[in-house]
Amino acid sequence: MNCTEFLANLTDYFDAQTATALRSELEQHMAGCEHCTVTLNTTRQTIEIYRNKELFELPESIHERLRQAVLSKCAAKMKRQKLKQS
C-alpha cells in the first residue's frame, strides 16, 4: 500500500467501516510511514477540536424570542386555513 491509497481509506478507517484485512494493511503502512501516521493523528485531532469547541451559544432569551416568533406565525397560518375551510 502506498500513501495515496492510505489517504483514500482514511475516512473509512476513522468511521470504523474498514474490513479487518484492509485495516491491518493500513496499520502496516503506518508502521513504516511517519507522514501517514502524523496525517492520521492530526486529522483525528482536528475533528476532536472542532467537535469539542462550542463556537457560540445563543442565550435562552433569544431562543425564546425566536420560538415565540415562529409559533405566532404558525398560529396565524392555522387561523387563515380555518377561515378558508369555513
Partner: peptide
Amino acid sequence: IPRDFADWMPNPEQNYNQAELAEILRRTI
C-alpha cells in the same frame, strides 16, 4: 493533499485562550 507532516504539540488547543482558539477555528473552517 497533505504537505505539512510536522507533528502537533500535545493538546495544541491549550496554547491559545478561548477567544484566540475560536478565531482560529472560525477562520479555518
